[in-house]
Amino acid sequence: MFITLGTPRRLSDLGVTLPDISVLKRWIDIAVLDDEPFIRTQALRTHGFRLTELGGDIKSVDQVASYPVVICDIRGVGRAFDSPHEGAHVISEIRKSYPDKFLIAYTGYTHDAFFSAKLASADASATKDAPIDYWTQVLELGLKNVGDPKQRWIRLRSTLLERGVELFDVLELEQAFVKSIKHRNSGLLMEEAKTLQFSSEVMDLIVKFTAAALVGLIENL
């Protein structure tokens, strides 16, 4: 038996207007993972971005949970992960747990095809000497992406489908997500997730999305 009543809520029904970039700059935190001091920190803070340097010694991807945008150096970062791909590996691990984040690979090796092949999980890249104009543009793009609930949901939705979640279950979750935003209640998504039979891995994704993304979006939009 297959009965659904009512009209499905559409993502376009979210009714959220994306705030100005100046507003996004004020509430979205940006993490920098680099084993050396990040040369653009001061200039980017002067431009209004909220940057936090976390160093290169990251031991768990959950350390960046509260940062919707992450800048990650490729060399000398995440040695604890014991991968020859260092920062590129960290980026792909962050992507697995937090598909909705905007990840920027920061590297001096953009000429090397080996590294760019490993950077499939990144959204953008910047070189060590990228001019400040480039950095501001990349970060603004990142803020617009993560400041938009629709974009963030679509990123999570794609990952859920890639991991084999049934289309109908994804639709149910999407309904709960739209409802969460409209009623400004992050608990609605979790309640719906609990009624569906998900693996612990999928459940973990939804829990992290709720805690790290949905709560922040509801508070600030």
Partner: peptide
């Protein structure tokens, strides 16, 4: 910086995908 960015293009055209 622009000259080095050009070297990236020459040696690794795939790098363009991630450039904004």
């Amino acid at each position: 910086s622009s000259r080095l960015a050009f070297t990236d293009l020459e040696l690794n055209p795939a790098a363009v995908r991630l450039q904004v």
